[in-house]
Write a protein that binds this DNA or RNA. Structure first.
Lengths: 218, 218
DNA sequence: AATTACGTCAAACATTTGTTTTAATCGATT
DNA sequence: AATCGATTAAAACAAATGTTTGACGTAATT
């Protein structure tokens, strides 16, 4: 009786082919369902039905429903952080004093993730922040290593800023970025009478960069 | 057999005295519990236990648990909107071209709501945005009348801005404001190594105003 | 005093949830 | 071919959920 083989799972190896393994299908089904309907609205039965798997599959392969969610979160958060870290490295290597480049490294990945799978990943991560299981939210709250890289880079680029200022503004900038769910865009589209849509991602990236960089005075 | 007396309820009349009526106690208990633990973590039994009421009281007085949540949401959202609208009126009457004053009207109420009851109300509203029942989220998405007042005022104050720009920046500004849960502050405190805490509300208001006004170029 | 409406209470209801169990099935290796 | 481990399948499980019921008491009204 083998159970809870979480250690064996390679979360990055997620294929989209319909004939993919059960583990991948569960991963993608859970991610898409949560992205669309939220954590609480998605049951184990919904996930296994969409994945074409048996109800027991989640517990067999992941140990529990929450561990499945945690695996998805870890995989997607790692992808996002990796993209951001790479851009941050490039920006700092190019010019350590270019605060705008550093901010762009923070903004660009979530803004330009536009493939279907990536969109789902982003919406999953966005939801996880507020609705996700306690284990996930704790990681988000307590693991600040990724953000500290940006804080340090910004402190170097803006030596005249007190560190407290850097932190607060970084906090505000993250607020802008997290406020990017489909629901938020729906309200914006309604408010602007269809004038503002998130379709043109390059334009959105520019708007975000201009707004946030202005907040940093650069 | 009388049931679902929602129409009779005056949500604004919320007293804090321990001897208050069952309706008020249910209202405050549900609000506080949701503020602290989130919508999904709070059951009807939790609420009635905290309110010192019978399990059936929620359905008797409000018709259902969701209608109770909706009543709380309506009451608190109305309070917040009323405060903001009053400040907006004053700001525009003082100087229709003062964009910063308009933005302050948007920022000040949620930032200076510091009494225990008000803090609970804010955390409830913040949670409602993402985790709340569908009915609440639909109202948030579709009822943009309140925001449109600010958009119009900003458009008047900043005539050289294309309306699209106003809308996007207002959208970004709301992102900053919504990003104000206890969890977010916990992460900020950790990230800044205790440097940044939301205790000094006047200072926080100033920081928010500076950041957002800069985003509007004013 | 009788009646009526209102409020409270404990109990039960029907669902749905995540998880576990037990058996059957498949596939490769011996 | 036989065996053994890994996977799938169906069923059952216990716990928790929101809601409803019907009885009981009480206070006001007729």
């Amino acid at each position: 009786m083998v159970r809870g083989r979480l250690a064996d799972i390679k979360p990055a190896a997620v294929a989209e082919e319909p004939g993919a393994g059960v583990v991948e299908r569960l991963f993608l089904a859970a991610e898409a369902l949560v992205a669309e309907h939220g954590f609480e609205a998605v049951s184990s039965r919904d996930i296994t039905a969409r994945a074409g798997a048996n109800l027991a599959a989640i517990n067999y392969y992941f140990g529990s429903k929450n561990l499945l969610m945690f695996a998805i979160f870890k995989a997607r958060a790692a992808e996002l952080n990796r993209d951001r870290a790479a851009l941050l490295r490039q920006a700092v290597a190019r010019d350590p004093g270019d605060a705008r480049g550093i901010l762009r490294a923070l903004i660009e990945p979530p803004t330009l993730w536009v493939s279907d799978e990536r969109k789902m990943a982003l919406r999953f991560l966005n939801r996880a922040r507020g609705e996700g299981p306690r284990e996930i939210r704790e990681v988000i709250e307590t693991d600040v290593r990724h953000l500290r890289r940006f804080a340090d880079a910004l402190a170097t680029a803006l030596p005249h800023f007190p560190r407290e200022d850097i932190m607060w503004r970084l906090h505000f900038a993250l607020g802008v970025l997290h406020h990017n769910s489909a629901a938020d865009y729906a309200r914006l589209a309604l408010l602007s009478e269809g004038l503002c849509t998130p379709d043109d991602r390059e334009a959105l990236l520019q708007r975000l960069l201009v707004f946030i960089a202005a907040g940093f005075g650069v």
